[in-house]
């Protein structure tokens, strides 16, 4: 093994620790009497039992899943339409559209959050889960559209022409040939959209009303009532178990579509 390889492995190990150690500590401390070291009365399920007295925490995870699911569904449909149009047609104003599409991708969430919420409040719309979904669709559309555009481009156009040649109209061609073949791309786009929505706190913090998504709930409890941190550590395990499931699902789909 060369000197440079050893150096690489050391750096990589350090970065892996930087990435995973905090999460491991979080899980560890969720089983501890306090959320600081040293360990006391370890392991204890005390905070998990306490968590049951915080239905808002459980609900937050539920809301998160709900928001992410609806967002994903909508963003994927927008993405399929937009991706198909970008890859396969020459619609009027294509250049303008691509420019427009990139805007939400390169704008800090705080700008979108503040703009959207101040605008909606002026219009008499109050923050709510629906508003979060509206915002999340905005930030996920560019990703789903771009992912699907590249998948549509990669799809051999003569397959679609072959379907038409065999008598299928535009819609039948899409349903019977294009869509089934683009399905792995749809799955990748869906998971990407789900993660973005599931992850988001900066935008949702502006848009959330009394029903908060999990990240917003953690953020606001941490800011307002820091003494409840142990509850949050217990809540984290729930989120993490979803996360691990999701991660494996993503990996599997990537494998299949590769």
């Amino acid at each position: 093994m060369t000197k440079s390889s050893i150096m690489f492995i050391v750096v990589l190990g350090f970065l892996l620790i930087l990435t995973f150690f905090p999460i491991a500590i979080l899980l560890l401390l969720s089983l501890n009497e306090t959320s600081t070291l040293p360990l006391r009365n370890f392991p204890t399920l005390k905070w998990y039992i306490e968590l049951l007295r915080f239905p808002a925490a459980i609900n937050a995870v539920k809301y998160s899943l709900m928001v992410a699911s609806v967002t994903t569904g909508a963003a994927v449909i927008f993405g399929i339409c937009g991706g198909y149009a970008l890859a396969r047609t020459n619609f009027a104003g294509k250049k303008i559209f691509t420019g427009l599409l990139l805007m939400p991708m390169v704008t800090p969430y705080i700008i979108m959050g503040f703009s959207l919420m101040s605008f909606l409040l002026k219009m008499g719309v109050n923050p709510s889960l629906i508003v979060i979904i509206i915002g999340h669709i905005l930030i996920t559309i560019p990703y789903t559209t771009l992912v699907l555009t590249s998948r549509f481009i990669a799809l051999d156009i003569s397959l679609e022409e072959a379907a038409m040649d065999l008598g299928a109209g535009k819609f039948t061609t899409f349903r019977k040939v294009t869509l089934p073949l683009i399905m792995p791309g749809v799955a990748v786009a869906a998971i990407l959209a789900f993660i973005i929505s599931w992850e988001d706190v900066a935008l949702a913090v502006f848009l959330a009303g009394t029903e908060q998504t999990a990240p917003v709930y953690i953020y606001s409890l941490l800011m307002k009532l820091p003494k409840f941190v142990p509850i949050l550590t217990a809540m984290s395990s729930i989120i993490l178990s979803f996360a691990i499931g999701l991660a494996f699902l993503m990996r599997m789909i990537e494998r299949i579509s590769a």
């Binding site: 149009a85 619609f91 599409l101 703009s115």
Partner: peptide
């Protein structure tokens, strides 16, 4: 070319209503 525009119309509207108009109002 106009018909195909329908495919991106929802995205157009979404970005304009949820992004551009609010940013403009700011």
């Amino acid at each position: 070319r106009l018909k195909d525009l329908l495919l991106v119309l929802p995205t157009y509207l979404w970005i304009i209503i949820v992004f551009f108009i609010p940013v403009f109002s700011v």
